[in-house]
């Protein structure tokens, strides 16, 4: 019998404050194969960040379980490294030290000192941040901070890489550049990735499958779309590609016709 690599089973999430309780997620189930790139898209407030936090273990689901390689995961850990929306680098450490902190903690017994240094440098190379290794986060641009955040997450050698709207706070050009880098890294390392986004183009460009969430409260998975585009993908060529256009418009239709945000209407 083959269990999926990562599986979310009947996740319910209810937030209770005082007497009132709000159901945020309703019976969310999802299976992810090893090496897959999955995007979760939905309007704001649909609980997609909550869902990611549950997979990360940062939030406890009210009901339901997350299995990773057949084991239940309910606490945070480096096997599910998170790239946070606002990078969350520690401002008192340099770029190098931020990544090194993760490397030192995760590989404290399995790698020697020299190997840990090498591994830190390799991950900085992967995101092309070696040149700024001794700078502090406040001294580099927003895009660079996010690249360091990605390097820190990759350096943990996670089984699943969790991206929480990683490019949301960046300008369009920087975002495109980072998307290309993430695609390249995904090609090289074949990570399993779960990405939260609200950008339709980003979702279609990067993902193997797009998970579309209905509006909250009580959000559930509305539809899952396969993106059968061959890799490597180039954004310029894809702009005229029929499959790309079809995927893009079906996500758009889902979001803006069938599940348009009520308050916005």
């Amino acid at each position: 019998m083959s269990k999926p690599y990562l599986s979310l089973e009947q996740i319910d999430m209810v937030f209770s404050r005082g007497g009132a309780s709000t159901q945020v997620l309703n019976q969310v189930s999802l299976s992810v194969e090893k090496g897959e790139f999955i995007s979760i898209i939905g309007h704001s407030g649909c609980g997609k960040s909550t869902l990611l936090n549950i997979v990360a273990g940062l939030t406890q689901a009210t009901r339901g379980v997350v299995f990773l390689e057949g084991t239940v995961v309910d606490t945070p850990g480096p096997d599910r490294a998170v790239v946070f929306q606002n990078h969350s680098l520690l401002p008192w450490l340099t770029v190098y030290e931020n990544v090194k902190l993760a490397v030192d903690k995760v590989f404290s017994s399995s790698k020697s000192r020299a190997e840990r240094h090498e591994w830190t440098m390799r991950n900085l190379e992967l995101v092309q941040m070696v040149h700024a290794r001794d700078k502090r986060p406040s001294e580099v641009s927003g895009g660079m901070k996010q690249r360091v955040g990605i390097a820190r997450a990759l350096a943990m050698e996670p089984k699943v890489l969790l991206l929480d709207e990683p490019f949301g706070a960046l300008d369009a050009l920087t975002r495109a550049h980072l998307q290309d880098q993430v695609m390249q890294i995904h090609t090289e390392l074949a990570n399993t990735v779960l990405m939260i986004t609200h950008d339709v183009d980003e979702a279609v460009l990067l993902s193997d499958r797009i998970v579309m969430m209905t509006n909250g409260p009580s959000a559930r998975i509305g539809e899952i779309l396969d993106v059968p585009l061959v890799r490597p993908r180039r954004r310029i060529e894809l702009a005229a590609d029929a499959t790309y256009i079809r995927c893009r418009s079906s996500v758009l239709k889902f979001l803006y016709e069938r599940h348009r945000l009520v308050e916005a209407a």
Binding site: L58, P76, G77, P78, L101
Partner: peptide, 18 residues
């Protein structure tokens, strides 16, 4: 202390002393 730093610590599984 921002929640973000605490989340980083939790993902890294830093112990109390760390």
């Amino acid at each position: 202390i921002p929640q973000d730093y605490q989340n980083v610590a939790r993902v890294l599984r830093l112990n109390q002393f760390e």
